[in-house]
């Protein structure tokens, strides 16, 4: 089981870092540029650009938007890999041997996804770095303004809130696609359909749970 968990960590977490870093860097950069271009009033201080980038990235982009992307990347991988095992009778083979197939296939994925918050922490860091590079080297604000914005009214609970969300999304990312893969019926075409359905439902569950968690954790 240990080797299975390590394999899943490699596949699900390390295998996703490239796309997470790529998206986070450019979204961070775009958020900064868009904010800078829309804050045209000279009364509004420039450091609000850094502040907006931080809030957008930590509160929503990294935990939620990246999780939607992961629903496509990790979710479809999980559904199609388990679904292919169903189609090719590999799950039946596990059952016949007396192996608890659901536990054998899904449990390592749930454990592996406990490391998902580390990927999101990297996303936050890279996103903010992308914002800083785009803001400073694009000539929209100084490095000091950006850093001042990053530190403005910082509440550590916002990071806690982001990681609580991330853990819930990690569970959703591991279980919803697994369910669709494990209980699919049919052939290769149905594996594709199950992957699409899994992506849709994973996204829906993430969006709805995001709303509920935000209301519960940040609402008055």
């Amino acid at each position: 089981m240990k080797s299975l968990i390590l394999k899943e960590i490699d596949e699900l977490i390390f295998g996703s870092l490239g796309i997470i870093i790529f998206i986070s860097f450019f979204i961070g950069a775009v958020i900064t540029i868009q904010t800078a271009l829309n804050l045209t009033n000279p009364i509004i201080p420039k450091y609000l650009i850094g502040f907006t980038a931080r809030q957008s990235l930590i509160l929503e982009f990294s935990p939620t938007f990246v999780s939607i992307v992961m629903a496509g990347k990790v979710g479809s991988y999980i559904t199609s890999s388990i679904g292919s095992m169903r189609v090719t009778e590999q799950i039946d083979a596990l059952d016949v041997m007396g192996v608890n197939a659901l536990n054998y296939l899904v449990f390592p994925k749930i454990i592996a996804m406990l490391f998902y918050p580390f990927a999101i922490a990297i996303s936050m860091f890279v996103g903010i770095s992308g914002g800083w590079i785009a803001g400073v080297f694009g000539g929209f604000l100084t490095s000091a303004d950006f850093v001042e914005g990053l530190q403005l009214d910082f509440s550590p609970f916002q990071v806690t809130y982001a990681f609580i969300k991330t853990l819930v999304f990690a569970f959703v990312l591991a279980t919803v696609p697994s369910y669709h893969g494990f209980y699919m019926k049919g052939g290769a075409l149905e594996v594709g359909k199950a992957s699409t359905t899994a992506f849709v439902w994973t996204s829906v569950v993430i969006i709805v749970s995001n709303y509920i968690l935000t209301q519960l954790l940040l609402g008055q």
């Binding site: 009778e89 590999q90 016949v96 007396g98």
Partner: peptide
């Protein structure tokens, strides 16, 4: 006992069902 019995069974599936 059912689990033990399962371990006394071997199965060759139509498509082999080898783990990819």
């Amino acid at each position: 006992e059912k689990r033990d019995l399962r371990q006394e069974m071997g199965m060759v599936f139509q498509g082999s069902a080898l783990f990819d």
